[in-house]
Design a protein around this nucleic acid. Structure first.
Length: 137
DNA sequence: ATTCTGACA
DNA sequence: TGTCAGAA
């Protein structure tokens, strides 16, 4: 069985996940309702999370702690997918890298760029609270 | 005992 | 986001 299969294998119920991620069941369900994650379901309609879902949630958690809301996280994570592909094409040297955690910085800058544009267009801010320190970059 | 959905003094 | 209800 390939590693990808194991990564996407539906394994743990929400109870385990809340302990693994420090997120409340409420939050986890809310993120699913907003399509940030798509955990599998058991025959009894119980959510079953994979390792992929887990670090996906951890990524979401870090963004939430940075003051981002669902709309913002959606954008950043979509860019993350696009970025990891283009990065794989440009970086011929890195053989075995860890894309996720490493991309977060690039994603944030890309995101902030959009933020500024949207604000000028009078759109609803995607960030809440103190994240203004990043505008210096 | 756990989880699910819907709703809000 | 918390939390409670009613059902599975």
């Amino acid at each position: 069985m390939s590693d990808q299969n194991r990564r996407h294998m539906a394994l743990f119920p929400i109870g385990i996940v809340t302990k693994l991620t420090e997120l409340t069941a409420r939050q986890i369900r809310y993120y699913e309702a907003n399509h940030l994650i798509q955990p599998a379901r058991s025959a009894s309609n119980q959510r079953l999370f994979s390792f992929h879902d887990i670090d996906r949630l951890l990524t979401i958690k870090s963004y939430i702690e940075k003051g981002m809301n669902i709309a913002g996280i959606k954008q950043v994570m979509k860019m993350g997918q696009a970025a990891s592909k283009s990065e794989a094409r440009s970086d011929a040297t890195d053989q075995s890298e860890q894309p996720r955690q490493d991309l977060t910085d690039v994603e944030l800058r890309q995101f902030l760029k959009q933020q500024i544009i949207h604000r000028q267009l009078g759109e609803t801010p995607l960030i809440r609270g103190e994240l203004h320190r990043f505008y210096q970059n």
